[in-house]
Computed example of a mutant assay.
Amino acid sequence: MNTDPEEPVLQVKGLRFGWSRPLLFDGLSFDVLPGVTLVRGDDGRGKSTLLRLMAGAQNADEGSLVVHGIHLGEHHDAYRQRVFWIDPQTEAHDALAAKGYLDSLSHHYPHFDADAMAELIEGFSLGPHLAKPMYMLSTGSRRKVWLTAAFACGTPLTLIDQPFAALDAPSIRFLLGLLQDAATHPARAWVLADYEAPEGIALTRVIQL
């Protein structure tokens, strides 16, 4: 794995995409370095869409995305193994128990860390909810499951949409601690999409939309 902090984890070049005219992105290019990057913008500016494109969950009209030398357009599956992203509104896992969803991650992400997952479950106070199917969880508890997955999966690139939405105060404090550690990681990158910068986090860069 790349450990040079000057080398980008993700390279985005010439990204072009739009649901209609005018385009959301036209020739958008940037690098994501290790640490924490913020994608910031008002509603309708394309924050969530940009994360979907970076995840390979939505096809761009033009442009290239490369994680650690793996081109999305050439090696889709290998690229997706190196990126964690989930739509926080998804219903795809509703029938699974929370623990079942988390346990399934090891089959998709080669560097999934079960010890880290146990610590995250404790930190987010998810223990009482693990046996419940996802559809029975509150919005905040579902968000905690997604965040646990995001930090346990061990991917070079982790994309998180509105990470603090619906969280209780203790979980917000715990997440801020995780992001403080992430900000100094020498090899992995986290990209957050939100309206404002998280308090007390040293950001690698801000992408303003």
Rank of each mutant, 00 (worst) to 15 (best):
L178K: 07
R143Q: 06
A193T: 01
H111F: 04
Q58I: 03
D31Y: 02
L137I: 08
L178G: 05
E119A: 15
L209I: 05
L147G: 12
R52G: 11
A92P: 02
K132Q: 15
T204C: 06
T184F: 10
R80Y: 08
L176W: 05
R45G: 06
A183R: 03
H111A: 08
R173C: 11
F164E: 04
A187L: 05
R205V: 01
H108D: 07
L137W: 06
G123Y: 03
L157F: 10
L15G: 04
L137V: 07
I160V: 12
H76E: 09
L65H: 06
S20H: 11
W85D: 02
R80C: 07
N59W: 12
S104F: 13
H75Y: 09
A169L: 13
G123K: 05
Q89I: 03
G27T: 07
I172H: 11
G177N: 14
H93K: 10
I86A: 15
Q162V: 08
P198G: 06
M54A: 03
Y109H: 14
D77I: 14
Q162L: 00
D194N: 05
K13I: 01
Y109D: 11
T49W: 06
S20R: 15
I86R: 11
K144S: 05
I207E: 00
A92T: 04
A187C: 10
K99N: 15
T49F: 07
P5E: 02
M54E: 11
